[in-house]
């Protein structure tokens, strides 16, 4: 998924205002950003096609609202940019690592921390 600057701004508008049609979004950006109603319409359409917006027809116009929250979208992008890198065919590679870190319990982390603390104490003793 690729998002442009205007798409981000439109999404931010909808996160803030919950919903809006093309004219409402356009009038919001008209003074600050310029552009045309057509540009806003096609941006809303693109975001809808990317499954980031939902829309309902009210009269002659579509009223759009965000389908995903900002936090969820960013979390998804982070996951995509990093886990996609591993590739579908090598998902088991991730799984192999997740079986180490994914199944890692607080207790295992405590044990590692105890080892670290022991070494740190030795270092401080030597330094001191």
């Amino acid at each position: 998924m690729q998002l442009g600057e205007l798409e981000k701004l439109v999404l931010q508008y909808l996160w803030q205002h919950k919903e809006g049609d093309a004219k409402q979004v356009y009038s919001h950006f008209e003074k600050t950003r310029g552009g045309t109603l057509n540009t806003i319409q096609s941006t809303l359409d693109r975001l809808f096609k990317k499954d980031l917006l939902t829309r309902a027809k009210q009269g002659y116009a579509y009223v759009y609202s965000a389908k995903v929250e900002r936090e969820a979208l960013i979390a998804q992008l982070i996951e995509d940019v990093t886990s996609d890198f591993v590739g579908n065919s090598e998902h088991s590679l991730v799984a192999a690592f997740s079986s180490v870190s994914g199944k890692m319990s607080e207790q295992q982390l405590d044990e590692l921390e105890a080892m670290i603390n022991q070494q740190r104490a030795q270092r401080i003793k030597q330094e001191g």
Binding site: I78, E79, V81, T82, S83, F85, V94, F97, S98, V100, S101, G102, M104, Q108, L112, M115, I116
Partner: peptide
């Protein structure tokens, strides 16, 4: 699933420590 993606803290943490 924990955030496996971070190159900083994934992948055989125990071995790295």
């Amino acid at each position: 699933t924990p955030i496996l993606s971070s190159y900083f803290h994934v992948e055989a943490l125990e071995e790295r420590v």
